[in-house]
């Protein structure tokens, strides 16, 4: 049997819109993954603690407030400190094209912006874990 893929879907920062995150969580569930959903307004510390305790292979973060350049790298930095850089980190939400190279330099493997089909995310995860 293939081991179940475990994914953490988290919402860092202060925006209160988790519709997108929930749609992704649901799609990953339907693709046979175990999705740990932690809810709104998570600090990077909370996200990393959850990722490590839950031993996820994938961490999906969604952010709509514009704080991605600050919060995403903070999460990857903390993951490094916890010796957990092997976790595949994906970003999503309202993220300007121009910011994506910076995020990728900082350990975000891929960024999915509005209009992405959930199929693309599932395929990306399956090919990269």
């Amino acid at each position: 049997m293939v081991d179940t893929i475990r994914v953490l879907v988290a919402k860092p920062g202060l925006d209160g819109h988790d519709r997108g995150a929930k749609v992704v969580a649901r799609a990953l569930r339907d693709a046979g993954m175990e999705v740990i959903y932690t809810g709104l307004r998570q600090t990077p510390e909370q996200i990393v603690a959850a990722a490590v305790q839950e031993d996820v292979q994938v961490l999906c973060m969604s952010i709509l407030s514009g704080a991605h350049n600050h919060l995403f790298p903070k999460v990857t930095e903390l993951l490094k400190q916890k010796d957990a850089s092997d976790i595949l980190v994906l970003g999503g939400g309202v993220i300007p094209e121009d910011d994506i190279p910076f995020l990728k330099e900082n350990g975000i493997k891929e960024v999915f912006t509005p209009g992405t089909s959930t199929e693309d995310i599932i395929t990306f995860i399956k090919e990269n874990v």
Binding site: R26, R29, A31, E34
Partner: peptide, 14 residues
């Protein structure tokens, strides 16, 4: 059906 799951108990354990 799919073997997938949403594990949401942590939402209440912030």
């Amino acid at each position: 059906f799919t073997g997938g799951a949403i594990l949401g108990d942590r939402v209440r354990m912030q």
